[in-house]
């Protein structure tokens, strides 16, 4: 019997190694907050964190950055007046800024087996300095590579034992994309449902992308 449920957060995060690339989903909501707290407690270091933004002064992103566990942050947006902004200014955090759509597509490419792609996004900007560009169909384009995670931390609304997931409203955001882009995909879910309860056409993230699920009720 396939059963991806694990009993608690430490079991969900067991084996995450120093130096791992961690994909953290979320955009205002849909953030796997309990798993991030668990990663702070678990203590892996020298991490690379991939997230939409650098967060604020409090909250999951700021909290894990403040521990010093993260060496490098890959994201689309950092507020100067935030934990991430101050760590970067102090030389304690490496930063790679990626346009948000390119970030999503690099993650998707990693999950999809695409080895590179050209996009017009950012091609005429400072972000393209020193990088390969090419005019395709008359448009200047920038070469981008997949962004693969060792671990994805995912938030779900419902999950069944195969790891099929739904995400509520705009809490979907990066969750399905990051789930398919990592070697180990760990999910926190608000609700557990019996196999077959989620209508097949309504599964947002199929269980094939999911390895471990832990129940985190609201």
């Amino acid at each position: 019997m396939i059963d991806k449920f694990v009993p608690d957060v430490p079991a969900a995060l067991a084996g995450i190694a120093d130096g791992a690339v961690i994909l953290m989903a979320g955009f205002g909501n849909g953030i796997p907050e309990t798993l991030v707290k668990g990663l702070v407690a678990q203590g892996a270091r020298n991490l690379t964190l991939v997230a939409n933004s650098g967060g604020r002064d409090t909250g999951p992103t700021a909290d894990i950055l403040a521990t010093g566990q993260v060496d490098k942050l890959i994201c689309s947006f950092v507020r100067p007046d935030s934990t991430a902004g101050r760590l970067f200014a102090a030389g304690k955090l490496e930063l790679e800024i990626v346009p948000q759509g390119t970030l999503a597509e690099r993650l998707r490419a990693a999950g999809a087996g695409i080895q590179a792609f050209y996009t017009p996004t950012g091609a005429d900007t400072l972000l393209a300095e020193g990088r390969e560009t090419r005019v395709i169909n008359g448009r200047n384009c920038l070469l981008e590579f997949p962004l693969r995670g060792d671990v994805a931390l995912i938030d779900a609304w419902e999950a069944d034992r195969w790891g099929n997931l739904t995400h509520r409203a705009s809490a979907r955001n990066f969750n399905p994309v990051m789930a398919m882009a990592a070697a180990l995909t760990v999910v926190q879910t608000r609700h557990i449902v019996p196999l077959g309860d989620i209508p097949p056409a309504n599964v947002h993230t199929p269980g094939v992308f999911v390895h471990r699920v832990v129940h985190v009720p609201e």
């Binding site: 947006f77 346009p99 948000q100 759509g101």
Partner: peptide, 8 residues
């Protein structure tokens, strides 16, 4: 600090 987001 760069604030690109989705603008590009």
């Amino acid at each position: 600090v760069k604030q690109v987001g989705g603008a590009m």
